[in-house]
C-alpha cells in the first residue's frame, strides 16, 4: 500500500521531482522561499516560509535561490518574466499566491503567454505552469476566496486543471510541467490538509481526461475540485433510496472531457454540474450548453447547475457556508429531476 500524504505534500513532491528531473524548471513567486537576503537564513540555507501555505517549503534549501526565486510583490512583473523565460527555453512554474490577484497580471496570460504561439505562426512554445489557489471555506473573505479557473478556461491557448485529491495533484502537476503549453494548476486551499495514498514514483495524470469516481445509472453529477466530495455524499444518500448516481470528477476545465460527460449523460439521462465558481458564464454553464447541444435527445429533464450565488465571497462563517454549494442544495436539485424515479 502506498503511503498516505497530504494534498500539500503531494504538490510539493510533484514540484520536487519535476525540478530534479529537469534543470530548466524554476519556481518564481512571492515568498515561495521567503527571507531572501536575510543573513542568518542565508547562512543556514533556510527558507522562512516556503509559500504562504508552506506548499513549496524545503525546495529552496534543496535547489537554491537561483531556482526557487522569491520575487518582489510584482505579479505582472514575474508572471510576464515567466512568459519571457518560457519563450526562450526555460520551464518556469510561477505561483500566483491567490487566484484573486489575477487582475494584476492578467495581461501576461490573456494577451501574451496564451497567444504567442498562435500570433507567431507556431514558432513559439510557452511551457509554463501557473500554480495558484482558489476556493471559499477558509474565512479568507472576498479578495482571497474566489474561484476564477473558469474565467481563465475561457481563454484560448491555455489549459486549466483543478485537482480534487493528492494523487491527482501530484500526477497532474508533473504532467503540467512537462506540457509545452501554458497550464493553470488551480489548488483548492481548503484541500491542502486532506490525505490520500500517493505513490512515491514520478507519474503523470492525463490533462483533459475526466475520471468516473462512482458509476451509476440514474443521474450524472459532474464536479470540479472539492465539489467532488459534495457529489459523493449526495450519491451515498441517494443510493439508500435506490437511486444510483454517476459521479464524474472533471479534473481539467480547459479543455474539458466532453466524451466522458456526454457518454455518461446518454446513459443516465440526467445531469447536475456542481461548480464553486459564480454562476454566470462559468464552466458549469459551458458544460450545460454543450450537453444540451450534443445529447438533447437523451435527456429526461433539464440540465441543472449548482454553483455559488452571484455574489462575492462573504466573510461571516455562516454566510460563507451558505455561499458554498453543499449536499443539501444538490439533493434538492436532484429531487426535482428524480421525482419520476421515486414514483
Amino acid at each position: 500500500m502506498a503511503r498516505r500524504i497530504t494534498f500539500m505534500k503531494a504538490i510539493n513532491e510533484g514540484l520536487d521531482m519535476a525540478m530534479e528531473k529537469d534543470e530548466r524548471v524554476i519556481l518564481l513567486g512571492e515568498d515561495i522561499a521567503g527571507g531572501a537576503g536575510v543573513e542568518h537564513l542565508e547562512k543556514e540555507n533556510e527558507d522562512a516560509w516556503g509559500g504562504v501555505f508552506g506548499v513549496t517549503k524545503g525546495l529552496m534549501p534543496k535547489y537554491g535561490r537561483e531556482r526557487v526565486i522569491d520575487t518582489p510583490i510584482s505579479e505582472m512583473g514575474y508572471m510576464g518574466a515567466s512568459v519571457g523565460a518560457a519563450a526562450t527555453g526555460l520551464r518556469p512554474v510561477p505561483e500566483l499566491m491567490f487566484n484573486d490577484f489575477i487582475g494584476f497580471c492578467l495581461d501576461t496570460i490573456l494577451a501574451q503567454g496564451s497567444k504567442m504561439r498562435y500570433m507567431f505562426g507556431g514558432k513559439a512554445k510557452i511551457p509554463m505552469t501557473i500554480r495558484t489557489c482558489h476556493g471559499a471555506g477558509a474565512s479568507a473573505a472576498a479578495q482571497h476566496s474566489g474561484s476564477y479557473y473558469g474565467i481563465l478556461a475561457s481563454i484560448p491557448g491555455i489549459k486549466v486543471v483543478v485537482p480534487s485529491n493528492p494523487y491527482d495533484a501530484k500526477g497532474l502537476l508533473i504532467a503540467a510541467i512537462e506540457d509545452d503549453n501554458v497550464v493553470v494548476f488551480s489548488e483548492d486551499k481548503t484541500l491542502y490538509g486532506i490525505k490520500d495514498e500517493v505513490p512515491e514514483d514520478y507519474y503523470k495524470v492525463e490533462i483533459g481526461k475526466a475520471k468516473i469516481k462512482r458509476e451509476g445509472t440514474d443521474l450524472t453529477i459532474v464536479t470540479i475540485g472539492k465539489m467532488l466530495y459534495v457529489a459523493l455524499e449526495v450519491a451515498d444518500r441517494l443510493s439508500k433510496d435506490g437511486i444510483e448516481v454517476e459521479v464524474i470528477d472533471l479534473i481539467t476545465v480547459a479543455p474539458w472531457d466532453q466524451e466522458t460527460v456526454i457518454t455518461s449523460v446518454k446513459k443516465t439521462g440526467r445531469l447536475i454540474v456542481i461548480d464553486e465558481a459564480n454562476p454566470h458564464n462559468n464552466t458549469a454553464t459551458d458544460i450545460a450548453s454543450v450537453v444540451g447541444d450534443q445529447a438533447f435527445d437523451y435527456l429526461d429533464g433539464p440540465i441543472k447547475k449548482v454553483c455559488a450565488p452571484n455574489t462575492p465571497v462573504p466573510f461571516a462563517t455562516n454566510l460563507e457556508q451558505l455561499y458554498l454549494p453543499n449536499a443539501d442544495r444538490v439533493l434538492e436539485t436532484a429531487a426535482e429531476l428524480i421525482d419520476d424515479l421515486k414514483k
Partner: peptide, 17 residues
Amino acid sequence: GGGFPIAIGAALRNKYL
C-alpha cells in the same frame, strides 16, 4: 508596455543558463 516583463524573463533565462 507588454514587452518589459517578457524582456526581463529572457534576461533571467540568459543569466540562469
